[in-house]
């Protein structure tokens, strides 16, 4: 039984903002299905009552003082931009 369908792969690609061709969708469906099938070995373990680990260090919220600091200049921040205009990043139209 397959764990993930081609339609699901296309949906996931859309969520991840990736454009994939039909051929790629076929290839990734097979590969992701293999990997997910492999990952299902975790179901052999009873994890009821086990706390999930998000992080190995015993850290709670790390706070700092909220004070203004000089960091990067606007001109510098824009210098690697693919397109810019009037001191801002320029992107294609968002609304049709």
């Amino acid at each position: 039984m397959s764990r993930i369908s081609k339609e699901q792969v296309k949906h996931v690609a859309h969520l991840a903002r990736l454009a994939i061709s039909e051929d790629e969708a076929d290839k990734f469906t097979k590969q992701l299905d293999d990997i997910i099938t492999y990952a299902e070995q975790l179901n052999e373990l009873d994890t009821s009552g086990v706390e999930p680990t998000t992080h190995v260090l015993d850290l709670k919220n790390v706070m700092r003082k909220d004070e203004p600091k000089k960091w990067l200049e606007q001109e510098d921040v824009l210098k690697n931009a693919p397109e810019k205009q009037d001191g801002q990043f320029k992107v294609p139209s968002v609304l049709e």
Binding site: V12, L15, A16, F28, L32, A39, T47, V50, P52
Partner: peptide
């Protein structure tokens, strides 16, 4: 791309508990 899609799948609605949270619990073990 493969890993981004695997991760997006594992975090997506309906699969989060079965894959992502399960893996976090095994990480504890």
């Amino acid at each position: 791309k493969r890993r981004i899609m695997l991760g997006t799948f594992a975090l997506s609605s309906g699969y989060y508990d079965a894959y992502y949270k399960k893996a976090q619990q095994v990480r504890t073990l």
